[in-house]
Amino acid sequence: MPLVSTGELVGQARSAGRAVAAFNVISLEHAEAIAAGAEAAGAPAILQVSENAVRFHGGRLAPIAAAAAAVARASSAPLALHLDHVVSVELLHAAHPEGFSSVMFDASKLSYEENVAATADAVRWGHERGIWVEAELGKVGGKEGEAPLDAHAPGVRTDPVEAAAYVADTGVDALAVAVGSSHAMTERTAALDHELIGRLRDAVPVPLVLHGSSGVPDEEIRAAVTAGMVKINVGTALNTAFTGAVREVLTGQPALVDPRKYVGPGRDAMAETVARFLAVVHAD
């Protein structure tokens, strides 16, 4: 079916008191697995390509964007295309020509004042082109190239009063907040601050986004959705599933050289992971 916009999927989820899951795309197999998982779950999903993934592909956005979009259009599930954790203004400006309906502009490394100014500029640019813009406030640790960060350290969590001012001053369409999760977790042990999620929900008029959801247990995700989270980002869990399946095949068949024989099971493992997460976030 035709690509659906991220704003439409998030809006529908919010109206229904549910959430929509967004999954990171690194390779063609990731995109195929997300589509297959969404079809199996009978739920919509967002395919998101990060700036790190673009860097992995030699800094070229067009090939991976075209592949993800082609997979999405061939799927029977409602799927959207999102450009994630964009720091580079040049990459931000490449989003519209490549068919992305939304961008997460990440100015979280800047001071608060610089973050507001840069994000407001990104929002103005995006809205002129019909692009939905997400931003981040607070410190969600675990990003590539950053020192480890304790998700429970003082000053890390997003402050509701500051969040309200940030949304008003930037005009963002959604806000990623720090509430106890962390990027790149391979074990699902994160404990979220659900009381804070509720306060943030009441403080800002836009949907809340949970980054680092791979490390969050199912019951914590369900509680977070009930408290007000609307977009649930998942990345590492797919890579963990893929790598585990590939490792199992190659360990059992050390002479194997045909990548289809081990990449295929890896893709299937990712699709199963996608379907499981969608069952959690899309539940009534």
Rank of each mutant, 00 (worst) to 15 (best):
R199M: 15
A62V: 11
A168S: 12
S213R: 01
R124M: 01
S101A: 06
R247W: 05
F56S: 11
K139I: 13
A74Q: 06
E134D: 05
T6C: 14
E128R: 12
V216M: 01
A21M: 05
A184N: 11
I26E: 15
A153V: 03
G252K: 15
T170D: 00
K231A: 05
A224Y: 11
A41Y: 02
L137V: 02
A68Q: 03
P160S: 04
V54D: 10
V177N: 08
V206F: 10
L137P: 04
P154W: 03
D84R: 06
D218H: 13
G142I: 08
G171A: 07
V87A: 15
D258P: 10
R222M: 04
G37Q: 01
T243I: 15
A227K: 05
R124P: 06
A35C: 06
V71M: 08
A67N: 02
V133L: 14
S15I: 15
E32G: 02
F100C: 11
V140K: 04
G11S: 05
A237R: 00
G198D: 08
I26Q: 14
G228E: 00
A191M: 12
G37M: 01
V230W: 04
R18K: 14
T6Y: 04
A283D: 14
V116F: 12
H127P: 03
A74N: 06
R260I: 08
L256H: 06
P2T: 05
V10G: 09
P160A: 04
T6W: 07
K139D: 15
G59V: 09
D218W: 06
V87E: 13
L81W: 01
S27C: 13
R157S: 14
E248H: 15
L175N: 10
A271W: 01
P148A: 11
H211T: 02
T158W: 04
L137N: 07
R55Q: 13
T158S: 09
V54H: 12
L61Y: 04
A117H: 11
S15P: 12
A227R: 08
I26P: 11
R276W: 01
A237C: 03
V25L: 07
A19K: 05
A66D: 10
L79F: 05
F277Q: 10
R73D: 09
K143P: 12
L256F: 06
W125N: 13
A21E: 00
N115M: 00
G215V: 04
V234H: 05
